[in-house]
Amino acid sequence: MTEVLEQTAYRVKAGEIFGQQRRPVGVEPVKRVLLLHGWQDNSNSYVNLIPLLPKNWWIVAIDWPGHGHSSPRGPGAAYHITDWLVDLREVVNVLQWQKFTLIGHSMGAGVALMYGALFPEEVEAVVALDVIKQLSEPAGTTHKVLRNAIMTLADHNQKTVAPQKPEIMSKNQVEQWWHGQSKAFMNEQSAAKILERGMRQNSGTTADEHLINRDSRLTFPPLFRMHLDQHRNVLKELKCDLLIIKAAGAQNYESPEVEKEFKDMYQKNCSHFAYIVVDGLHHVHLDRPETVAPVIVDFLEHRPIKNSH
């Protein structure tokens, strides 16, 4: 079951960040919750989960810049992992929230963990879906990765000095492309949900001409990625309540040694910490929200809950 959510827009320095929200009517919310989607997704990542969360929570799900309905970065710009933190900070400032909870999936979970460590006076709790931390730059790869990233972006910028014709496809072609890209991460119904906000009609025509609602620069190699020691230095300052939900059917993004190190650090430093494994793929919160929602609600409203491994 999905709900009709209120469409929102937040004016920030780089343009507009769009989103969807459900706000309690006539009562003060008992909890304010920001939902942060993963790389190349959009806020529809949470449309199946939101109806299962308490009605007295004020819930806002945003589209990151370059995703969904939000503005892309400006001409010549790149997407840096640290920029998402600035985007989140600006949305929080517009909302004027003093205390809130962050629920993030994949890339969004990595951002939530970092933000909670950097701004502990604001973040009451973090829920990280299928991520232990942001991906770190592998040791010894900086020269190769940076060279490739610079060449890719510079080549793109050179090609876009003159306006480029966007890639236009039929709706069926877009759907087939997207399902092929996403089948390892979510089921077909979930992919369709993401695509509802991730595809748009070509403006000025009623023909079957559609475009992907996503900045192609998101697929470029990163100009900057933090090293493991930098993640250690920042995330040791995460002190709020933390719940990590791991999807059993998803790939592991960290080595067993790194995963154990950060789980041990969270256990030591966070006010409450729980690590729960549930059956499902990487987008388990979208595929099987009835499995994920009770765990989130139980932790955020009652904690602690029993760990699983």
Rank of each mutant, 00 (worst) to 15 (best):
Trp177Thr: 11
Ile276Glu: 03
Leu52Trp: 02
His309Met: 12
Lys133Ile: 08
Ala274Pro: 08
Ala109Thr: 05
Asp130Gln: 00
Leu228His: 12
Leu211Val: 09
Leu34Pro: 01
Pro221Thr: 00
Trp84Val: 11
Gly74Gln: 06
Leu153Ser: 09
Phe224Val: 12
Lys183Phe: 09
Ala192Thr: 14
Leu300Glu: 07
Arg232Lys: 14
Val25Asn: 12
Leu235Arg: 01
Ile150Glu: 15
Asn56Cys: 08
Val145Asp: 13
Leu113Ile: 02
Glu90Thr: 05
Lys159Trp: 11
His282Thr: 00
Ala77Gly: 05
Ala154His: 13
Ala9Ile: 10
Ala293Leu: 07
Ala9Cys: 12
Asn56Asp: 15
Ile59Asn: 01
Glu301Leu: 05
Gly140Gln: 04
Glu121Ser: 04
Leu49Pro: 00
Gly110Asn: 06
Gly19Gln: 07
Ala274Asp: 05
Ile305Asn: 03
Gln40Trp: 09
Lys13Arg: 13
Val292Met: 00
Asp279Arg: 09
Lys144Ala: 14
Ile305His: 01
Trp177Met: 14
Glu301Ile: 04
His231Gln: 07
Leu102Ser: 02
Met169Phe: 14
His67Asp: 07
His179Leu: 14
Phe224Arg: 10
Gly19Asp: 06
Ala247Met: 02
Phe299Gly: 02
Arg32Val: 02
Ile168Leu: 10
Glu124Ala: 06
Lys99Phe: 13
Pro120Trp: 00
Arg217Asn: 06
Glu121Tyr: 03
Val27Tyr: 10
Val297Lys: 02
Val145Asn: 12
Val111Trp: 09
Asp130Pro: 07
Gln164Phe: 05
Lys268Thr: 13
Lys31Phe: 11
Asp41Phe: 02
Glu3Thr: 11
Val86Leu: 12
Gly76Ser: 01
Ser43Asp: 05
His231Cys: 04
Ser71Met: 02
Ser45Met: 03
Val12Ile: 08
Leu88Val: 03
Lys165Asn: 12
His272Tyr: 08
Val126Glu: 06
Leu52Arg: 04
Glu167Cys: 12
Val86Trp: 10
Val91Asn: 02
Pro138Tyr: 00
Glu261Cys: 01
Met169Lys: 15
Ile194Leu: 09
Glu28His: 10
Ala128Val: 00
Ile305Gly: 05
Ser203Asp: 15
Tyr266Gly: 10
Pro294Ile: 05
Val174Phe: 14
Ala192Met: 08
Asn56Gln: 15
Tyr266Cys: 02
Val234Lys: 03
Ser308Val: 07
Ala248Asn: 12
Arg89Gln: 14
Leu195Phe: 09
Glu90Lys: 01
Glu237Tyr: 06
Pro221Arg: 00
Ser216Val: 14
Thr142Ile: 12
Glu261Trp: 11
Asn93His: 13
Gln158Val: 15
Met199Asp: 13
Lys55Ser: 12
Arg303Gly: 11
Asn172Phe: 13
Val284Gln: 06
His282Lys: 00
Ile296Pro: 01
Val91His: 00
Ala248Glu: 15
His179Thr: 14
Trp178Glu: 10
Gly38Pro: 08
Asn269Phe: 03
Val258Glu: 07
Trp57Lys: 04
His143Gln: 15
Pro256Lys: 05
